[in-house]
Computed example of a mutant assay.
Amino acid sequence: MSAVTTSFAETAADGIREPVIELVDARKTYRTGEIEFEALRGIDLQVTEGEYVAIMGPSGSGKSTLMNILGCLDVLTTGSYRLGGEDVEQLSEADLARVRNRQIGFVFQQFHLLPTLSAWRNVELPMVYGQVAKAERRERAEAALTRVGLGDRLDNRPGELSGGQQQRVAVARALAGEPTMILADEPTGNLDSASTADVLGLFDELHEAGRTIVLITHELEVAQRARRIVFVRDGRITSDEQVREVAA
Rank of each mutant, 00 (worst) to 15 (best):
V123A: 02
T116K: 04
P158E: 03
G163F: 07
V214D: 06
E208H: 12
E142C: 01
V171P: 06
Q90P: 00
G71S: 02
R147P: 00
P158Q: 11
R173F: 01
S239W: 01
F108A: 03
E142T: 00
R137I: 07
E38D: 08
Q110C: 01
D14E: 11
N68F: 04
R157F: 01
V47Y: 11
V171F: 07
D198I: 08
F37A: 02
Y129K: 06
A174N: 08
Q165G: 11
S92R: 02
L70G: 03
L191T: 05
R211T: 12
D192T: 07
E10H: 07
T78D: 06
G33D: 01
G189P: 02
R140M: 05
T238S: 05
E93K: 15
D87I: 03
E36C: 06
S239M: 07
R100T: 13
F111P: 13
S193H: 09
M67Q: 10
V232E: 02
E86H: 06
I16Y: 07
T146E: 15
L200V: 04
M56H: 04
F111Q: 03
L40M: 07
T11W: 13
R17A: 15
L202T: 10
Y129C: 04
R27M: 01
R27G: 00
D234C: 11
S80D: 04
D152F: 00
G130R: 14
E178K: 14
A94E: 11
R17L: 06
E36V: 01
L66G: 05
I35V: 06
R102C: 02
G42S: 03
V107Y: 04
T116I: 01
L206S: 05
T11Y: 11
R138L: 09
I182P: 10
S195D: 14
L183Q: 09
L23N: 13
G177Q: 09
E245K: 06
V75S: 10
E186K: 13
V123L: 02
Y81M: 03
R137N: 14
A141T: 04
A174E: 10
I237R: 03
R41D: 11
F8V: 08
G60F: 03
G151M: 03
F106M: 13
R31Q: 14
G163A: 12
V199L: 14
D74C: 09
A223R: 10
G163K: 05
N68H: 13
G15Q: 14
A197H: 14
R31S: 03
V128I: 14
R138T: 12
G201Q: 08
E18L: 10
V169N: 00
F106A: 06
T217R: 11
D87F: 03
V232F: 00
V232G: 01
D204E: 13
V99Y: 12
E124M: 15
E142R: 07
I182R: 12
Y52F: 15
E241S: 13
M56N: 01
Q110A: 07
L145I: 00
G84P: 12
L76G: 06
T180E: 15
T77K: 12
M181Q: 13
N122E: 00
R225N: 05
